[in-house]
Nucleic acid binder design. Sequence first.
DNA 1: GAATTTAAAATTGTTAACAATATATCATCA
DNA 2: TGATGATATATTGTTAACAATTTTAAATTC
Lengths: 239, 239
Amino acid sequence: MSAQIDKKETTGFSEDEVLRQIEQAVLDHRLPPGTKLKEVQLANLFGVKRGTIRKVLTRLAHSRLVDQTPNRGATVAKPSVKEGRDLFATRRVIESAILETLVASADDRMIRHLKKLLEREEKAYRRGDSELALKLSIDFHRELAAMAGNSVLEEYLNDIIRRTPLVILTHLGNDKENRCRNQEHVAIVDAIEQGKAKKAVKIMHRHLLQIESKIQHKPETPQTDLATLLRPPGERVPA
Amino acid sequence: MSAQIDKKETTGFSEDEVLRQIEQAVLDHRLPPGTKLKEVQLANLFGVKRGTIRKVLTRLAHSRLVDQTPNRGATVAKPSVKEGRDLFATRRVIESAILETLVASADDRMIRHLKKLLEREEKAYRRGDSELALKLSIDFHRELAAMAGNSVLEEYLNDIIRRTPLVILTHLGNDKENRCRNQEHVAIVDAIEQGKAKKAVKIMHRHLLQIESKIQHKPETPQTDLATLLRPPGERVPA
DNA sequence: GAATTTAAAATTGTTAACAATATATCATCA
DNA sequence: TGATGATATATTGTTAACAATTTTAAATTC
């Protein structure tokens, strides 16, 4: 009744590629929290051995993107309200530190690069391409972290960013409201350009609190679905 | 020439226990950076299968305590000067946030508990038991993190604490100077008790900068030795 | 003797078969 | 019907044997 998922022809991915694809699926809000992740199913989907999937799941569990329980396999993690709050609070701390560092060393080239990113982001918003807009919004935050030049801060922010979609999906639903506002990104870059660290931090705080303030009620538990949602482009559905 | 390390009789540890023992060995400055970690050797030492060691090494690599290179195995990580600086800079950020949070919610019970810890720490210092003093000093920082009540901040601080010995050993040597000073810990608790967050943060900054300022020169590369240093208590050496 | 090549040993990486556990299916009975 | 228990299936966990690679050692050549 739930047997053959073919897909043997694909060339086969490396362990890192599989990991990144799953992480990307979470970032894109395609993998709802609570989704069961069966080893053989994933192995077939990606055209790899079960052992590879096994290692990937362990790594994902280590970064708290999946929950692993002995003998019962892995599911996409479902952060608690508490964890969600802690995550956002920590994010404010990390992003503030990034901005303080960045303002001290920002040059024209960086500012220009950031503004180019923001233009693309705004264009995506106007065009109504919310998928691309979300991606570019994430890129903006990541770019700030990379520019600050502290690899550990960058590492931690990326960790938080990866976990954030799970918090949003479990405690906010998939509303369009819960996205970064391009306008605020612009204001942050302006503050950086002016060398006003405190101002940049203040805007960033408001920016993050806007989303954070909403995570308190958990509306309902949506039913999990099959894992064909791992493939971003059009894909055929096996018989 | 480097063949049989017996040790088959031991009861055998679980995966998590093996992980913790290795982490503890790093914390205790018993595992110098660069030490080769051979799978079968570790498997024999802990009385577990090679697969278990393999998973543990992967997990340790994920938290950057070991470096893994394909086909060439794992070694205890050797952080660069840059990584060391970034680590300490981030630690200041995290510990500051912890203190700010903590001061807002500290009660008498917490203060009393902290003071008790400090007494034990001071006693260990006076007695000259620098091993215990180091351990208690780490406990102090961890306790602050736990009391703040933000699980993500706590998680990150623990991550940093685990990696810190590797930075110290590679770029500072094993001097007694590079340890936390009990006196400063006392001053931090006093500031918390008085509800002065800014003051506590300032002391903490000075506290951490004192160590951080020294990581610039890397004296030499000490030779790696065998991994019998994994056992804290007295152990027999096989023929 | 130093450098290069060849062979041996040690170490890591992979796989398929098996074992253990959990989940689903179905029959039985109150 | 609904609960209980037995059987079958599906899923995860483990292991030992094998393959691939690197490191070490020895042999050869100049």
